[in-house]
Amino acid sequence: MEPLKEFTGIAAPLDRENVDTDAIVPKQFLKIINKTGFGKFLFYDWRYLDGEKDNPDFVLNQPNYRGASILLTRKNFGCGSSREHAPWALADYGFRIIIAPLFADIFYNNCFKNGILPIQLSEEEVQTLFEKEKVAPNYQISINLEEKVVYDHEGFRSSFTLDDYRRDMLLKGLDEIGMTIEYAAKIEAFEDKHPIFYQI
Rank of each mutant, 00 (worst) to 15 (best):
T21Q: 09
E131H: 06
T73S: 12
F29E: 14
A91D: 10
I196H: 08
I181M: 13
I98V: 15
G51R: 10
K31Y: 01
M179I: 03
R96C: 03
L121H: 02
S159W: 01
D192L: 15
V59P: 00
A23C: 04
D168G: 03
D20H: 06
E191W: 06
G39A: 15
K35F: 04
D54V: 12
Y65G: 04
E6A: 02
F29Q: 05
T73N: 12
E191D: 13
N76A: 05
E147L: 07
E146H: 01
G115I: 12
T21Y: 03
D20R: 11
A189L: 14
E124D: 15
F95D: 11
I97C: 01
A11T: 02
L4G: 03
Q140N: 07
I70D: 00
F77G: 12
L129D: 06
G178D: 10
H194S: 07
R167T: 14
E191M: 11
V59R: 02
F112A: 03
E182H: 03
D163C: 07
D22I: 04
G78F: 10
H194N: 14
D105E: 15
L121P: 00
L162A: 06
T8I: 13
D168Y: 00
T8C: 10
F112P: 11
L14Y: 08
I116N: 00
M179D: 00
P118G: 07
R66C: 04
P137V: 01
E52V: 11
E176T: 11
N109G: 15
E182A: 08
L60S: 04
F103V: 05
L121Y: 02
E52G: 05
A100W: 05
I106H: 00
P118Y: 07
D45E: 15
Y48I: 12
F41Q: 04
P87F: 13
D92N: 14
P26R: 10
V135D: 14
P56V: 07
G51E: 12
N64V: 01
D192V: 10
L72V: 15
I141K: 06
E154V: 14
Q62F: 00
Y48C: 05
R47F: 04
E17M: 11
P101M: 04
T161M: 07
A104H: 09
L4T: 05
Q28V: 06
Y108T: 02
E52P: 12
F95H: 08
A184K: 01
N34H: 10
G78L: 09
L4E: 01
D168V: 03
G178V: 10
D15P: 01
A185F: 02
Q62D: 02
F43M: 15
D175S: 01
F38Y: 15
A12P: 00
E84A: 12
S159H: 13
L42E: 13
G80V: 05
K193H: 04
D168T: 06
V59S: 06
I181L: 11
P101A: 01
G94K: 09
L171I: 08
G51H: 14
F38V: 07
P87H: 09
D57F: 02
C79L: 11
Q62I: 12
